[in-house]
């Protein structure tokens, strides 16, 4: 079907990048509200296992999607309660969520009467169109050769970007992440805005996880998502808290993940371990060059990120 290995690489890159797109957009929303959630990896994992379990037992893909959204949001609610209501350390709370999610997802995969681990998904998301448009050279597979969740992620990125920068609630969201006292004095309920976005962020991370277990690699293994959650956190910085940039950065790293297979066919051998470092190295470089001190704020780093806000302690 593919014209060349290059096109194949790009199509795979988009698929591999999609879970990270969902998770990164979710984390952008949370961080824009001033809440750093290092639980992305954990939320993705519980979303992945919930989605897979639904499909495995009920054979409904959309139920799997729904469940992954709910479970992701529920996991995020733990972090939201800890960091917004109790105002405890966001870093430790987020890491706790990741550790818990990692353990829980693997546990569920193996603990039940029926073991999920090692099982393929009875159903999975397939490319929406076959033949016709998808057969157009070059553009066909790139534009029309994906499953519906990829298209939904494009819609999500466009909508989120519009929401953050062009709407009144988006303005309130950014104000809450930048300067909670000013937002409060303009009549905005800081805690409510934070709760909403952390929960939505968790739901999206859950869906990102489910994309892996229901579309990318439709099966269940222990910890099937690799370092995707951590990559999403790195991408949020690389993308300077902007959804479109996160989308393209995710595809870039999706490509990097696939690149060594392709390069081997071309006779070049770059070890996959070194390629896997790329997102993290770039994120650090981006922070050093662009996002240090004052410059970070001008770039879009929410000034109140990871700082608890208490109305009484103004």
């Amino acid at each position: 079907m593919n014209e060349s290995a290059e096109i194949g690489l790009l199509v795979l890159a988009i698929a591999a990048g999609t879970p990270v797109v969902y998770a990164a957009v979710g984390e952008i929303l949370a961080e824009r509200a001033g809440v750093l959630n290092l639980g992305v990896q954990g939320m993705m994992l519980v979303g992945a296992v919930a989605g897979f379990w639904a499909v495995f037992t009920v054979e409904s893909l959309w139920l799997g999607v729904l469940l992954s959204l709910i479970v992701g949001a529920a996991a995020a609610a733990i972090h939201a309660f800890n960091s917004i209501t109790l105002r405890v350390n966001q870093i430790v709370s987020g890491l706790a969520l990741t550790i818990f999610g990692t353990g829980l997802s693997t546990f569920i995969g193996r603990a039940g009467e029926t073991q999920l681990a090692g099982e393929p998904a009875p159903k999975s998301f397939e490319p929406l169109l076959t033949g016709g448009l998808a057969d157009i050279p070059l553009i066909g597979p790139l534009v029309f050769g994906h499953d519906i969740l990829v298209y939904l992620s494009w819609l999500l990125v466009a909508a989120t970007s519009y929401y953050i920068f062009r709407t009144k609630p988006g303005l309130a969201l950014r104000a809450v992440g930048e300067d909670p006292p000013s937002a409060e004095s303009a009549g905005i309920d800081v805690a409510k805005v934070r709760y909403i976005h952390v929960l939505v962020g968790g739901a999206l991370a859950g869906l990102g996880g489910a994309y892996i277990s229901l579309a990318l690699v439709p099966s269940w293994t222990d910890e099937p998502i690799g370092q995707a959650g951590w990559i999403a956190i790195a991408l949020v910085i690389l993308a300077s808290w902007r959804p479109w940039r996160a989308l393209f950065a995710a595809y870039l790293f999706g490509a990097a993940g696939q690149l060594n297979f392709y390069l081997q066919t071309q006779g070049v051998d770059i070890p996959s371990n070194l390629l896997a470092m790329l997102p993290f190295v770039l994120a650090i470089l981006a922070m050093l060059v662009l996002a240090s001190g004052e410059r970070a704020r001008k770039l879009g780093a929410p000034a109140a990120l990871a700082i608890p806000y208490s109305r009484e302690q103004r």
Binding site: R166, K168, A175, A183, K298, A303
Partner: peptide
């Protein structure tokens, strides 16, 4: 909000500003 434009600061939380800015 220091990182907002003047116009954005005017609109923030204003009851009569429409949802679509």
């Amino acid at each position: 909000v220091m990182n907002f434009t003047v116009a954005e600061n005017l609109a923030l939380g204003h009851p009569d500003v429409p949802t679509r800015l």
